[in-house]
Amino acid sequence: MSNLIEDLFHGNLRLDESIHPEHSEYQEINRQISDLMQDYKTQLTESEYDALEQLIDLIGQSTSMYVEAAFEQGFRTGGRLMIEVLSKP
């Protein structure tokens, strides 16, 4: 059994690799995105498609930053909750 603190120290903790959304429509949405991108690739010029990909990459970067901030906020809130729970008799 691994030690969470040791894994954290050694950089072995990769929470982002263990995220698997449980929403039933998640896979379907990803399939639709893939289908739409394939359609755009055939309908747009190469430069237009490249611009679309750039936009999608920027949205992905923005979303990643937001998710990271949300994770940090949730982690801090959980820590404060534990302190409150453990400090009250």
Rank of each mutant, 00 (worst) to 15 (best):
G74Q: 14
H20C: 15
R76V: 07
Q61D: 08
K41V: 01
K88P: 01
H10R: 06
A70S: 07
Q27D: 07
E84Q: 13
D39K: 14
I5F: 11
L86D: 15
N3P: 03
G11I: 04
Y66P: 01
E68G: 04
I83P: 00
L52W: 04
E17Y: 06
M1Y: 10
L58P: 00
L13P: 01
T45I: 00
H10V: 11
D7W: 00
T77P: 02
S24Q: 14
D39E: 10
E22Y: 08
F75H: 10
P89F: 08
L55V: 10
G78I: 05
R14P: 00
G74N: 10
I5Y: 05
L58K: 06
I19K: 03
S18C: 13
G11P: 03
D16V: 07
S18L: 04
I59C: 03
Q32L: 10
Y40M: 11
L36P: 02
Q54G: 04
I83V: 12
S64M: 08
S64T: 06
Y49M: 02
I33Y: 02
E17T: 13
Q43N: 08
L86V: 08
N12K: 07
T63F: 14
Q73C: 09
R14L: 06
D35H: 08
I19R: 11
T45W: 00
F75G: 00
F9W: 03
L44G: 02
F71M: 05
I29D: 01
Y40I: 03
V67G: 02
T63W: 13
M65K: 14
L44P: 00
S47E: 10
Q73T: 15
N3G: 06
D57T: 15
